[in-house]
Design a protein around this nucleic acid. Structure first.
Lengths: 364, 364
DNA sequence: TTTATTTGCGAAACCGTTTTCGCCCGCAAG
DNA sequence: CTTGCGGGCGAAAACGGTTTCGCAAATAAA
């Protein structure tokens, strides 16, 4: 009963038969002209028939539709977009897709886009403004009919968005918005939730709870931190050089991990932490595991996160869970209002979908 | 110290100022003709200058590039695509984006697409053939230059892919391939890994390990199940009406959850399970938690999964981890070979990237 | 000096649709 | 018998780029 395979074998490549001499030629797709020719009618009539125009008789429409199906005709989207000046496509700009929040948000966005017959162009800024700028520029000139964006962590200006606005491409922020640019935004009640997190820990008798932020400029982080600080202040705990309620973890994943380990292992360190985003929460868990710090006995943990596995973590994790799917869905709905109704003004539109605090073992 | 907010308030909407009278007009984007006019040169020269053609003098190029930047000119992608007969876009068709595997794969794909200056059109089939077929049809007629697809669970024919192939659009399977269609595929060593999983459990002394599959037709599931069965057979454990080594969980998420609960709670039920996909693993954990079944004492669990939280689950989860990022990246690389070199034949190309068994507490 | 060749640029065709107009015909009203 | 009208269709002009091809002037070769 020996192992018949080589487990974890090195990468295996099987090469197929190559015919280098035999160049592939793109088979000529049937176009509307050929379709018209076969039917012995004009191109204009075919186009109108396929779009179900009232100018065309039912009889002709039927013939056209049938022949189109027979010849497997599908209109060229670029020609169509060029002429109609729309692309039936929306751009979605995300910092990254690793975070579970964005996976869920994409699902929400997709559900609406699909029902409207729109396509989804996905861009990743890797949380860098420099990429975001390039992406936004790319979305101009009619490539997309509208944009859903969750701003990068180091975006400090909205000049790139303003450019796009000049072309009158509707923009909707979701989750991570930017204060200096006025357009629709679909966010969650971050400040309240920061407050809830702080209050929850204070009520558990914590003396030195800290909030682990990843950015001082990102609104979601700022709001969460400010709400948290307010709760701390109201509880009578005072900040001091030795105790800062809000700490910043910045840099690469590895750098952040080291910072976290330093913070939680130091003398008179925090007795509880709030992870501002999912990634921080996982790193806190990993760090505790590595350092042998017991959650929740030695350190209580609460995280802003949509992690599906929160209830089956060791210990199960108290979370403030964002309605990620709903946020994506709602943002997409608003965007389509902006796209479809030219007189719908996105400015000042602000929808707040509340998150929920779900208490589990990590703060017990 | 009362709570100053209404926590978990109902959805809040702030409406902006509407100017229904003031229709937005799409500001006229400067096009190549206007740019040429300003410069007092021909449209052709501008076009060539911007594409750095050798026919144009350095001096002229400089003037054109500067003026283009000044006027914020960006070429219309649809006009360009129409004429050049390419779209600088690839289509990615996924069953869903919830599974962590696909999030990672998207990152891998995106890393390559970005470096090539390509755009990513993302489609979700929701694991249904009927959707997949529509999506594939949509990708025709030049909308994309190539396709990366992870087939849906109930796809039984490749007719839709064949249609696309007639247009000579390169297709590459990643992770979930389809046997009946010959093109490049980038997959993992599923059969071996099924075998490894079975062997791992047998070596732990398990007597009734079962493999929880989600599809009898999906190659990844079939292969994993077959490898598993082989390991069981070799160990001398024999199947019987009371003990089937491979069980199928099908239907909605809720239905699957019920099936799992039934399976693991029955008299003489399994003493170990292999979750064929991530979703099943989570449901097994949830079910055990609900039913009070202890992992690993009463039930050992091993899962095909790329879950980041596997090491911090309760208990930490033994996984067979796919190189998801690499699979996406490699598939994209192959696809670009197919797109860029017309004489590169994708048929028969098959790359197998091995997964790794990582033992943790759930099988201890 | 004449003839080739190269260099730099422009006119116009082209990509595949959509849409605007105008035409023709049949029918109803005057 | 006119006139008006509307239904059904086609010719041609967009849409905004890219590419081919030709032309003129400048340079090189003979």
């Amino acid at each position: 009963m020996r192992n018949r395979f080589r487990p974890q074998a090195a990468k295996t490549i099987v090469h197929g038969s190559k015919n280098p001499g035999q160049r592939r030629e793109r088979m000529k797709k049937v176009n509307i002209r050929e379709l018209a020719q076969v039917l012995n009618i004009s191109v204009a009539t075919v186009s109108k028939a396929l779009r179900d125009s009232h100018e065309i008789s039912a009889e002709t429409k039927k013939k056209v539709v049938e022949m189109a199906a027979l010849l497997n005709y599908t209109p060229n989207p670029h020609a169509s977009s060029l002429r109609k000046k729309n692309s039936k496509t929306i751009g979605v700009i995300l910092p990254k897709v690793a975070d579970n929040f964005f996976s869920l948000a994409i699902n929400g966005i997709q559900s609406i886009a699909e029902s409207k017959g729109y396509h989804l162009l996905i861009y990743l800024s890797h949380d860098k403004f420099i990429n975001e700028k390039l992406i936004v520029a790319d979305c101009g000139s009619g490539r997309v009919d509208g944009i859903l964006i969750s701003i990068s962590g180091d975006t400090e200006t909205a000049e790139h968005l303003r450019q796009l606005n000049e072309e009158n491409i509707p923009i909707v922020f979701f989750d991570r918005d930017f204060d200096g640019f006025d357009t629709a935004r679909v966010i969650t009640n971050d400040r309240e939730c920061g407050y809830m997190a702080g209050k929850h820990l204070v009520e558990k008798g914590m003396q030195r709870p800290v909030f682990l932020s990843i950015s001082s400029s990102l609104p979601i982080c700022k709001e969460r931190a400010e709400g948290f600080e307010q709760a701390i202040r109201e509880s009578g705990i005072v900040a001091s050089p030795a105790y800062q309620p809000v700490l910043y973890c910045e840099g690469s994943d590895e750098a952040i991990f080291e910072q976290i380990k330093t913070i939680i292992s130091q003398q008179d360190g925090p007795d509880a932490v709030v992870a501002s985003v999912e990634k921080i929460a996982l790193q806190v868990y990993m760090a505790c595991q590595e350092l042998g710090i017991h959650i929740p006995a030695a350190l209580k943990v609460i995280a802003f996160s949509t992690l599906e596995t929160a209830p089956i973590l060791n210990p199960s994790l108290t979370t403030i869970t964002q309605p990620a799917f709903e946020i994506g869905k709602t943002a997409a709905e608003i965007l389509f209002k902006g796209i479809e109704k030219k007189n719908f003004d996105l400015k000042g539109e602000k929808i707040i979908l509340p998150s929920r605090l779900i208490e589990r073992a990590s703060t017990q």
